[in-house]
């Protein structure tokens, strides 16, 4: 009887752990379904040079009520040269969601990671340091910048 209940306890713990693990993997996928490829053309004329650049623009988030996933990237798609934020035209944000969630939860966010406004954690506060706007979410600091007509946030070292 004693050993049996121990077995049950271990078993229950395992099931609960497994549930949390799978749901953490599943959530980004569900949130992903709300994203749009967003390539509806709003002009018949393509852009001026190298015409095809329109086809390689990043995806956009459709408005959502809840922000479950943390949507981060820090790779070839983005770089900051100290003066300007640069994006590659061929980056696709949604590919990294699942991995980023796990990395973010375990290791904390790496300086230079880019998060879309829609994917920012909900509990953050606006802080202004030397007139520059930042968002502080716990111990992580973000700096906003425009990427096209949307605001993205890049993880920065604490400014103070």
């Amino acid at each position: 009887m004693q050993t049996r209940s121990l077995f049950f306890r271990v078993n229950t713990a395992l099931v609960v752990l497994l549930f949390f693990f799978t749901s953490s993997v599943m959530f980004p996928t569900l949130a992903d379904a709300r994203k749009s490829e967003n390539r509806t053309r709003t002009s018949i004329h393509k852009s001026g040079h190298k015409g095809g650049s329109r086809d390689r623009r990043p995806n956009r988030d459709i408005k959502r009520k809840t922000n479950i996933n943390v949507n981060i990237r820090n790779d070839r798609g983005y770089r900051y040269d100290g003066r300007r934020h640069h994006y590659h035209r061929d980056y696709h944000r949604h590919n990294d969601v699942g991995r980023a969630l796990v990395v973010g939860a375990i290791a904390g966010l790496v300086v230079g990671s880019v998060v879309t406004a829609a994917s920012m954690p909900p509990a953050c506060s606006d802080v202004y340091v030397n007139g520059y706007p930042y968002r502080q979410c716990g111990s992580t600091w973000y700096q906003p910048h425009y990427a096209g007509s949307q605001v993205n946030y890049v993880v920065v070292s604490p400014p103070r």
Binding site: R84, H85, Y87, H88, R89, H145, Y146, G148
Partner: peptide, 15 residues
């Protein structure tokens, strides 16, 4: 209102 930076989009071949 606050001023922030704006990102430049490079073409992959240039970058």
């Amino acid at each position: 209102a606050h001023k922030i930076d704006i990102a430049v989009f490079d073409d992959p071949e240039e970058s």
